[in-house]
Design a protein around this nucleic acid. Structure first.
Length: 488
RNA sequence: GCCGGUAUCGUCUAGGGGUUAGGACACAAGGUUCUCAACCUUGGAACCGGGGUUCGAAUCCCCGUACCGGUACCA
């Protein structure tokens, strides 16, 4: 089995396309197939190398590594359409020689005028076939004399083209509604419908899995497979991803590209898992599964026929799950850019600071949707203004005593008990009591929360000179004051 | 307009000739709690409409409706 994802490098990777890439990848992974990445850059105006690179980055970030293609090599390259011109030329000549294709000299204006009049008459705007019957010799002569021409496919009249879509079943089109499609544009660049067929055939693609927007291109492509006698791949058309208003997901709905979701602090495994859930179900009432398991269960036949609405709330929920499961060091690494963006980290991060982040972040991650919110939590530490002046001395003393009496407060309950005794002694409300130390409390890990209270404060103070944590320097004094007041 | 596709809670879906139509997100209530969250429990919430086939239809068929896609020298 050989599948491919074939994006046009005209911008960032849209989540809808990312989902198409994912479904291809899932199928390949689950069936031990080959996942090919081909760049369809025949739209010279809009294609850029930067976009291509961005798409590659996004795919890699999602973990959708391709086995063959741009940057990876393979036996069927090159994998960029603009580098495959020779095979398009060869195939064009073959079609022309066999009379299955022909030169069309109609001008864009003529074509446009015809389309308008057809539409006005309530007829399907298909190509009139004006140049269909120009004798080949004459056409060749005109072409060689420099007349501008496209190459069109001669679509057979009066028959049906049927294909068995793997997700939808039989789909039939009548050729009478299909105008002869342009295969090669007047500038010699192949059109999509042409290049895609030649490439898929030559790259021995067995399953073409793409968006539903290509479904009506399929009969034209099948006609091309027939014209060349190439073996047809299986086709599978995925429904589109919609916005909350049930219109195709676009910028006006907010974030649409993988890059934007990445920047918003979603984990790649969360995006992948969530995207797999639009239009497909792993079954067994399970939803949160690693990519490998999704691949193992994936069946094209089980993909939903209808379009799905992208639900960022659910994505956030999935993300929360993976945030909790994230290994501490990786979490610190993932959080770093977001903390830097908030200027909570400036300059190089010391090993100690890294370790501290690793110890403090997982607890915070347990109650957060996205990475940048970790900075909010951390803000409580960095921008913490301890109400030491207003703190009742007796309260501080009482708490300090309790802490002293139980220096190894290793569990929540023990601390809570101590705290409650302080409350009872001082008559203070919970909020006032906890405020100065809450931040540290929040930053602890599930079990040994309390262990971190005092040490974290101490360590934070120590970081003043060695860590890259910006505000710790500034708040060293304050932190020191809390620490000492607690000890007083 | 024409061609094609699609239709189960607000959303993603499971199921599929006889089910209390299941799960998840979101929502609501309660619990827990140092705030907001997170977390736990409970709850409300759906088979687009009309015809057929059938003992029986959400499920199969037809029609309608709505939505989506295409109707390019863009992919």
């Amino acid at each position: 089995m050989r599948v491919r994802f074939a994006p046009s490098p005209t911008g960032h990777l849209h989540v809808g396309n990312a989902r198409t890439a994912l479904f291809n990848w899932l199928l390949a992974k689950g069936q031990n197939g080959t996942f090919i990445l081909r760049i369809e850059d025949t739209d010279l105006e809009r294609s850029t190398r930067e976009s291509e690179q961005a798409i590659l980055d996004d795919l890699r970030w999602m973990g959708l590594q391709w086995d063959e293609g741009v940057d990876a090599g393979g036996d069927y390259g090159p994998y960029r359409q603009t580098e495959r011109m020779q095979s398009y030329v060869d195939h064009t000549n073959r079609l022309l020689a066999e009379g299955k294709g022909y030169y069309c000299f109609c001008s864009a204006e003529t074509l446009e005028a015809h389309r308008k009049s057809q539409l006005a008459a309530g007829l399907p705007p298909k190509y009139a076939g004006t140049c269909r019957n120009i004798p080949p010799e004459e056409a060749r002569r005109r072409k060689e004399s420099g007349e501008s021409a496209t190459v069109r496919l001669r679509v057979p009249e009066g028959r049906n083209v049927t294909f068995n879509d793997v997700v939808r079943g039989a789909v039939t089109f009548h050729t009478d509604v299909i105008g002869d499609p342009v295969l090669v544009r007047s500038d010699g660049i192949p059109a999509y419908n042409f290049a895609v067929v030649i490439d898929d055939a030559l790259m021995k693609v067995t399953h073409v899995i793409r968006g539903e927007d290509h479904i009506s291109n399929t009969p034209r492509q099948i006609l091309l497979y027939e014209a060349y006698g190439y073996q047809q791949p299986a086709f599978a058309h995925l429904s589109l991803v919609m916005g909350p208003d049930h219109a195709p997901l676009s910028k006006r709905h907010g974030a649409t590209s993988v890059k934007e979701f990445r920047d918003k602090g979603y984990l790649p495994e969360a995006l992948v898992n969530y995207l797999a859930l639009i239009g497909w179900s792993p079954g067994q009432n399970e939803e949160l599964l690693p990519a490998e398991e999704l691949a193992r269960r994936f069946r094209l036949e089980n993909v939903a026929h209808s379009a799905g609405v992208f639900d960022e709330d659910k994505l956030a929920w999935v993300n929360r799950h993976y945030l909790k499961a994230c290994e501490p060091n990786r979490l610190a690494e993932l959080a770093e850019p977001h903390l830097r963006a908030r200027k909570q980290i400036v300059g190089a991060l010391s090993a100690d600071a890294r370790a501290w982040l690793g110890s403090v972040l997982p607890g915070m991650a347990a109650s957060v949707d996205r990475l940048p919110q970790l900075a909010d939590r951390l803000d409580a530490v960095f921008n913490f203004t301890p109400p030491t002046e207003s703190l009742d001395a007796s309260l501080v003393k009482a708490l300090a005593e309790e802490l002293d009496a139980a220096p190894r407060l290793t569990d929540k309950d023990a601390f809570r008990a101590a705290a409650n005794r302080v409350k009872a002694k001082t008559g203070l409300k919970g909020k006032e009591l906890f405020h100065p130390i809450r931040v540290v409390l929040t930053g602890s890990d599930e079990g040994p929360e309390l262990d971190l209270i005092v040490p974290a404060i101490d360590r934070a103070a120590d970081f003043a000179q060695s860590s890259g944590l910006a505000k710790v320097v500034g708040c060293r004094e304050r932190v020191g004051r809390i620490a000492s007041s607690l000890r007083r």
